[in-house]
Simulated scan of single mutants.
Amino acid sequence: MDKSVNKNILFESFSGRATPLQKKLIEQWLLEPQNREQYYEWLDEWENQFIQILPNTEDALQKSLQKIAQNEAYLTPISVEPTPNFFQHNFRWLAAAAVVLLISFGVFIARDYIFYKRYQTAFGEIQKIQLPDGSQVSLNANSALKVARFGFGTKTREVFLTGEASFSVKHTIDNQRFTVKTDKNFEVEVLGTEFNVYARQKEAKVVLNKGKVQLNYLVGKATKQLTMKPGDLVTFNPIGQAKVQQIAQPQNYSAWQEHRFVFEQTPLKEVATMIYENFGVKIEFRDEALSQRTISGTFHAENADELLQVISELLEINFNRQDNNVTFFE
C-alpha cells in the first residue's frame, strides 16, 4: 500500500478539507484494487465517528421552489391565458418532490455500493466464492450475491441472493446464524450445513444436503416457519405456499457446480427453461407435443451448444439456432 496516503489524509478528504495535491494522491492510490477495500473500511470508521451529511430535503424543497418561481416566465406561455388544471396547479410540488426523490435515490445507491460487495455471474458462468467467515458459495450462471463489506462473520452473516447458489456454511464458535435472503418472500436461516437455493423468476426452491435449516417465508401477510432435514426439497408456489418432499439424491440439485445436468423424466419444456436461465438461449418448439417429451440421464455440458446437441441426438430430433434463439423440430 502506498504510504503517501494514510487514514488522516482520507479523513480530511471525507470532511471536505483535502488539498488539491492530496486529492490527486488519493485518485492515484485508488487505481490499485487492493487499496479500495482499505478505503471503504476507513470510510465506514469515519462515518461512525462523525455526524453524517444527509440530504436536507426541506432545504432542497425550498431551493427548488425558489428556482421554479424565478423561472416561471419560461414555464408559463405569455401570449395565452392558461386554463387552470391539476398539473399546472401542482407543478411546483411535483417538481420539488422529484428533486427530493432523486437526491434520496442517489444517496441510497451510493451507500449500497459502499457497504455491500456484489458478485455477479454472466450466462454460462459459475463463480466460486469464499466468504470472510470461511463459508463457501458456488454462484450459478445468471445470478447475483450481495455481501456486507464490513463486519461479516462478527456483526452479521446475512447475504442477499438473486438466482441460484449452493452454500457450504461454516459453523462458528458462538453459533452465529447464517441467513440467505431472497426477493421471493422467503429466507434460509442456518448454523452450519450444505444446501442449494434457487430463487429465479418462474420458481423458488431449497434443497438441503446435510445439516439443518429453518425457512422463514410469507404467505400473504402471514409469516411462517419450516424446519428442513437432509434430503428435503421445498418448493414455493406463486402465492408463497411451501410444499415439502423427500428426495433420494439431493446432491443432484447442485450438480451444476461441476457443469453436470441431471434429468429424471424431465419434460423438454422444463429443460428449455433451465437452458434459458443458465445460458440465455431461448428455446421454442415447432410442435407442442414435442415440448412434453421427457429426457433422463446425467450430461456434462460447458455451454448451451453441447447440451442442445446431446438432447438432439438422444431424442433423435433436429434444432435450428440463430443467435440466442433455438427451434426444436422433428
Results as ranks from 00 to 15, higher is better:
1 M>A: 10
5 V>P: 12
5 V>R: 04
7 K>V: 03
10 L>V: 03
11 F>N: 06
13 S>H: 14
14 F>T: 02
14 F>M: 04
17 R>D: 10
21 L>D: 10
23 K>R: 04
23 K>S: 07
26 I>K: 02
27 E>P: 05
30 L>Y: 02
32 E>A: 06
32 E>S: 04
36 R>C: 02
37 E>M: 05
37 E>Q: 08
56 N>A: 14
56 N>W: 10
63 K>Y: 12
66 Q>C: 10
69 A>S: 15
69 A>M: 08
73 A>H: 13
78 I>Q: 12
80 V>R: 01
83 T>H: 04
84 P>Q: 06
86 F>A: 12
87 F>W: 07
89 H>W: 01
89 H>D: 12
91 F>H: 10
94 L>H: 09
97 A>L: 07
97 A>Y: 05
99 V>R: 11
100 V>P: 01
101 L>Y: 12
112 D>Y: 15
115 F>V: 03
122 A>E: 14
122 A>I: 09
125 E>M: 13
125 E>W: 07
128 K>S: 14
134 G>C: 04
141 A>G: 05
147 V>A: 01
148 A>V: 07
148 A>C: 06
148 A>D: 08
149 R>H: 09
149 R>M: 06
150 F>K: 08
151 G>I: 00
155 K>H: 08
156 T>K: 02
157 R>D: 03
158 E>F: 00
159 V>E: 00
164 E>Y: 05
164 E>I: 00
167 F>L: 01
168 S>Q: 09
175 N>D: 07
177 R>S: 09
179 T>E: 02
179 T>I: 14
183 D>I: 07
184 K>P: 04
186 F>L: 07
188 V>H: 03
189 E>F: 03
192 G>D: 05
194 E>C: 01
195 F>E: 04
195 F>I: 02
196 N>D: 05
199 A>S: 11
205 K>T: 00
209 N>P: 02
213 V>S: 01
215 L>I: 04
217 Y>I: 01
220 G>S: 06
220 G>E: 01
221 K>R: 10
223 T>R: 11
228 M>F: 03
230 P>M: 04
236 F>C: 03
237 N>I: 07
239 I>S: 13
239 I>R: 10
242 A>M: 08
243 K>C: 06
247 I>M: 05
252 N>R: 12
254 S>L: 09
254 S>M: 11
254 S>Q: 13
259 H>A: 14
260 R>W: 15
261 F>C: 06
265 Q>L: 13
266 T>M: 15
266 T>S: 07
270 E>A: 14
271 V>K: 08
276 Y>K: 14
278 N>K: 12
279 F>W: 07
282 K>C: 03
283 I>A: 00
283 I>C: 00
285 F>Q: 00
286 R>V: 06
287 D>H: 13
289 A>F: 08
292 Q>Y: 05
293 R>H: 15
301 A>H: 08
304 A>C: 11
305 D>R: 15
306 E>H: 14
306 E>Q: 15
307 L>P: 00
307 L>S: 03
310 V>L: 11
320 N>H: 10
327 T>M: 10
